[in-house]
Design a protein around this nucleic acid. Sequence first.
DNA 1: TCCAGTAACTTGTAAAATGAAAGTAACTGG
DNA 2: CCAGTTACTTTCATTTTACAAGTTACTGGA
Lengths: 140, 140
Amino acid sequence: MPGLGCYSHAMKTPDKSVLPDACKRSVCPVASALDIVGDKWTLLVVRDLYMGKKTYSELQKSPENIPTNILADRLKRLQQAGIIDRQSYQTNPLRYAYRLTDKGRDLDRVLKAIVEWGNRHIPETMQIEDIDSLFPRLSE
Amino acid sequence: MPGLGCYSHAMKTPDKSVLPDACKRSVCPVASALDIVGDKWTLLVVRDLYMGKKTYSELQKSPENIPTNILADRLKRLQQAGIIDRQSYQTNPLRYAYRLTDKGRDLDRVLKAIVEWGNRHIPETMQIEDIDSLFPRLSE
DNA sequence: TCCAGTAACTTGTAAAATGAAAGTAACTGG
DNA sequence: CCAGTTACTTTCATTTTACAAGTTACTGGA
């Protein structure tokens, strides 16, 4: 079965502090990507940042009601993965605005494909007519 | 925040046998799609079916080493979601071949986008040069 | 006929992730 | 001074996952 190049690494992480996150399941790009964004919440955070949300509280107000500890965790992981960064937009008190990096903005094609598939195959999803206007490539 | 149409349903499932799986997080197509394929394993099963694998044991032999109970669970869920079906290819003993439905084959754009993103942004992933040849639209 | 082997699962259980709620720290505005 | 907001962290019960082992049903060979 050649093709997607999915060969196992067969390596385990004895200590998380030594090998931070280098334990990929395989060299397959699908598996490696799912190691980062393959869960119920991560891509929703990316979606919201795409939609223009910037702060923690804005991200928390989404209709899916992400638990606050999960949101904090995903923001940390997305930062470590280089998909988002944050900059302080005020001091006293220190507050951060989150935003997508180039790597994060490149997920637009994935999001668009998911929107199209959902609209086509899942009834009662809100039809998005002009997807490109929803996921513009912000030049920053 | 208009746009993706993500409004909460605010409904809970008191009994799983009564309301099978109708409890979506929102009407957002991204959230609804992730309710189905948003985990570490589901899209890998779809990938393998795309690559030509058909049987349970073939799916189990992938380099990511999916646990057997997870594979059985995902095959059930994918069937219930209408993404795959199965047909018996022999009796005595009864054996099934799994295959993607139209709905499942329509995930090719999602997979392709993920492959491209992984190849571009995750080092050491196997570079896929000709993606379209890997995800042909089998007319079956 | 006996036995190893294969396919397709299921079951049991420990570990990890998730979800809901509450708590905390630092400020603001009245 | 006190209620309110923001951005989290902590606790803990529930759910999901991972790993191992077991089960059922057949095949093919000695």
